[in-house]
Design a binder for these strands. Structure first.
Length: 855
DNA sequence: GCAAGGTC
């Protein structure tokens, strides 16, 4: 008997080949005695474009809308046509006893297989079987599941649900994008997913713009008794804030007037346990990598893909599952064995009892989706990039943590009665860090870790200090990739209606794990959203589209995340055989028809949008005028229009990368590089340098010094006249409020590196300041920073060296906070309890030092 | 010039 097996992707086909002992690889498939195994590359077939139905539809016109094809048709996707033809030939030109569909176990997997069969003209359903499992495809799982093949008709409903998903997205997207674009005179894309997400970003921008901060007050009282001190925070029922000023004043007066001590009225101690976090889904990993390293979702996906595909140390990344299947216990044991050897520290406290099927937080078939959670397969290669290692480390730690004991801690809550008001004190002592060992003990609960004396009810404490804190309410934060992914995954948090909240209780989100990163990028490329560091900000254009759609009652549902969830719910019922597909499609068609009619006649404000292009990245400093040099399509040029300095992206036939340009700007010389082509078509090598000829700065070749700096990534040594030390230039995202960046590559070789005066770490350069490479909590949480601009003066590299060496700079003209100018030199001093400060020493007499820059 | 969903 011969069988044809069709998988969704090459990696799965090769898992099958391994399990079935098929070794003979042909072009586009594996060939064995009993099996031929071939693979798709995701979707190989797509819906017709409008102009495939009718060439007249190539032009976008309002009059041709709504576009509602009588019958939807498919065509092969050009990019993967070769593979489609291979599969079609196998299906139609060879006789197999059975065709086994082994695409991923989910709705889209079903669509991928069915559309290939459809477009190949293969109709013999009797011979088609479905291979269905979400377990990791180790050989045993493949062989066992091959013995439990299902008739394909069991999955017809799933295929229909997938088909309606495709078709309804097409109807909404094609019609409303064309309509809004033609009516508003600029490209305005509209879609079920992208418009709902855009609306979330626009709403957040509006909330923040219209937010009015309110002042409120807290009270803290420091009690002191025989057993020690404790701080109580005022509360009444669940409230800890007082929003009324007279009330706050009255309370303060009462507290100050009160002579009697505080009395402990309750003391509760509980031992609590916190289980390890669940294994990573892609979205969780993207969130964590965005929070910790500032990686955009797309970057994390790309790195994870490389770890999976090239380095083969990570499982399939596009998964929304946070568990493994019960068939993966053996796999887990193998992986644990390999990783233990590579990083024994992380696995020293693994609890063998947790490495068993009784660990339902890890092994849970009921919670498996198309794929299982992200896990490591083996230690990462030494050759991997820094970013790859960072990301992989997150996965390994999460994996290790999953097999650790719970974190056990003792939580204490003390209530003290003072002046007839109640004050609470919370403490937390970690008894056994359990899985937190993997992350370094106690990082997570720093804020709460207050040590409380062993109080009992009735203990008295004299009042030592009464503190009133004035605070302001803050608006919800701007979205980052991380926060947006969270709300896309779990939109119910922002949905008011109880009924709809319930819809989200299942696993319904907006978009899918495979596309969420892409949706964010689409919004950016449409000019709806901009990145500003970690933040994602809706632009005026994005806000405008949402406003126009919301003017129209029918179309406005696209701007509500609820609607996308309703569609998902209905598709689910179709997949389960409970819903009517015809009614669903009729509903969507009616929606599109009505929305088109409504928007055709709506009084839309037509407004012209200049592309709000985010500024291109700064790649260096202009040698001619000191302003930023930015990348543009053809060159790296000075942002000052009046300055003509430019480094073209092609020099003598060779492409110049941003990295090369950065080096060139920093060191005035870079190379040597191979691959230039002379006017006589001869190849040659040369370094590039920046020279000043008659007051004109330009890039020229340098033929000296050939081959000398090759050990240094093609980077020349720094120009000795410019600096004796170097600072690592960091080009990743800024972190936190200080806007210092994460460290980039290793410190530049060949030059003395500057050291942090507090912890001896490496000095790294961020966007706004020079900081310490040990800024991460796990590296020592060093907060050292010197801002690049101090009192209106921009520091030079030489100033920085002088300051770090503890020496005084020469006097400069500086400005104080009132804008008054004065002349002073700067020096770094130890500031008590604060790390370091930069002081300026005014030139005038008797003015003393003035602290201008605390860390 | 359009959607969203796969995979590269």
């Amino acid at each position: 008997m011969t069988e044809l097996i069709l998988t969704e992707k090459f990696s799965v086909a090769s898992d099958f080949a391994k399990a079935l002992g098929v070794k003979n690889k042909k072009d586009g498939y594996f060939e064995g005695d009993a099996h031929v195994i071939t693979w798709a590359v995701g979707h190989l077939v797509e819906l017709f474009e409008p102009d495939d139905y009718d060439a007249g539809l190539k032009k976008w016109r309002v009059e041709t809308l709504p576009l509602i094809p009588e019958r939807f048709r498919y065509k092969p996707i050009t990019r993967t046509l070769q593979q489609f033809r291979t599969i079609k030939a196998l299906l139609t030109q060879r006789q197999f006893d059975r065709i086994i569909i082994a695409t991923d176990a989910g709705r889209e997997g079903e669509v991928i297989a069915r559309t290939i069969l459809l477009e190949s003209g293969f109709r013999d359903k009797e011979r088609i079987m479905r291979f269905w499992t979400s377990q990791a495809l180790v050989p045993k799982v493949v062989r066992d599941t091959m013995n439990q093949l299902k008739p394909i008709t069991d999955y017809d409903r799933l295929w229909r649900a997938g088909y309606y998903r495709q078709v309804s997205d097409w109807l909404v997207g094609m019609n409303l994008t064309r309509l809004m674009t033609v009516r508003l005179g600029d490209l305005f894309s509209v879609g079920r997913v992208q418009t709902a997400v855009l609306a979330m970003l626009v709403d957040r921008r509006n909330e923040r713009e219209h937010f009015i901060p309110e002042t409120y007050w807290n009270f803290k009282v420091l009690f002191s008794g025989d057993k020690g001190r404790w701080t109580g925070r005022w509360f009444k029922e669940k409230e800890t804030r007082i929003t009324d000023k007279p009330q706050a004043d009255a309370l303060l007066e009462r507290f100050q007037a009160e002579k009697a001590p505080g009395v402990v009225v309750s003391m509760k101690k509980e031992t609590k346990q916190e289980p390890p976090p669940l294994l990573f889904s892609l979205t969780d990993l993207q969130q964590e990598a965005n929070n910790r390293f500032g990686f955009p979702a797309k970057k994390t996906l790309a790195i994870a893909q490389a770890l999976y595909q090239d380095r083969k140390c990570l499982s399939y990344p596009r998964t929304d599952s946070k568990v493994l299947g019960t068939a993966s216990l053996g796999l887990v044991n193998t992986v644990l064995g390999k990783l233990e050897q590579a990083c024994p520290d992380l696995f020293a406290f693994v609890d063998p009892k947790r490495v068993s099927l009784s660990n339902r937080r890890v092994f849970n078939d009921a919670k498996l989706t198309d794929h299982h959670a992200l896990i490591p397969f083996k230690p990462i290669s030494e050759a991997a990039s820094r970013d790859e290692k960072l990301l992989f480390d997150l996965v390994v730690r999460r994996f290790a943590a999953a097999f650790h004991p719970d974190c056990r801690f003792e939580s204490t809550r003390v209530v003290t009665l003072f002046a007839k008001e109640t004050f609470q004190t919370r403490g937390k002592v970690i008894l056994d860090p359990g899985w937190q060992r993997v992350y370094g003990t106690g990082i997570r609960d720093k804020a709460e870790a207050e040590i409380i004396p062993p109080l009992v009810e009735g203990d008295e404490g004299a009042v030592e200090k009464i503190e009133r804190e004035e605070k302001q309410t803050s608006p919800p934060p701007d979205y980052s990739d991380s926060l947006l992914l969270k709300d896309m995954t779990n939109p119910g948090r922002y949905v008011a209606e109880e009924e709809i909240k319930r819809l989200y209780r299942g696993d319904i989100g907006i978009g899918t794990q495979s596309t969420r990163a892409q949706i964010i990028e689409t919004l950016i490329s449409r000019g709806y959203v901009q990145r500003a560091g970690k933040r994602l900000l809706a632009t005026d254009k994005g806000g405008y589209l949402v406003t126009q759609l919301r003017k129209c009652p029918i179309s406005s549902v696209l701007t509500s995340p609820e609607e996308t969830a309703r569609w998902e719910m209905q598709l689910n019922t179709i997949a389960l055989g409970e819903g009517s597909d015809i009614r669903f499609l009729d509903h969507i068609k009616a929606f599109v028809t009505n929305a088109v009619a409504e928007l055709k006649s709506a009084g839309l404000n037509v407004k012209l949008f200049k592309a709000e292009q985010p500024q291109a990245a700064v790649i260096g400093i202009c040698p001619a005028c000191g302003k930023a040099v930015r990348e543009n399509p053809k060159a790296f040029s000075c942002e000052d229009r009046g300055c003509e300095f430019v480094i073209f992206k092609r020099i003598a036939g060779k492409s110049i990368s941003a990295k090369m340009a950065t080096n060139l700007l920093q060191y005035r010389k870079s190379g040597p590089f191979k691959g230039f082509i002379s006017k006589k078509k001869k190849r040659f090598s040369a370094s590039l340098k920046i020279v000043n000829e008659n007051g004109h700065w330009k890039v020229t070749f340098d033929f000296n010094n050939q081959g000398k700096a090759s050990s240094n990534n093609g980077q020349a040594s720094p120009d000795p006249r410019r600096s004796i030390s170097t600072v690592e230039r960091v080009r990743s995202e800024p972190r936190g409020p200080e806007s210092l960046s994460a460290p980039g590559s290793e410190p530049t070789q060949g030059a003395e590196t500057m050291r942090c005066p507090l912890c001896n770490g490496t000095i790294i350069e961020g966007n706004r300041g020079f900081g310490c490479s040990n800024w991460r909590p796990e590296h020592g949480d060093c907060r050292f920073v010197i801002w690049k601009e101090i009192a209106g003066k921009t520091l030079t590299l030489q100033n920085l060296e002088t300051l770090i060496a503890g020496k005084k700079t020469r006097p400069y003209v500086l400005k104080n906070s009132n804008g008054d100018k004065f002349k002073a030199s700067m020096k770094m001093v130890k500031a008590p309890g604060q790390g370091v400060a930069i002081e300026v020493e005014p030139q005038g007499e008797g003015q003393g030092f003035k602290v201008l820059c605390l860390r």
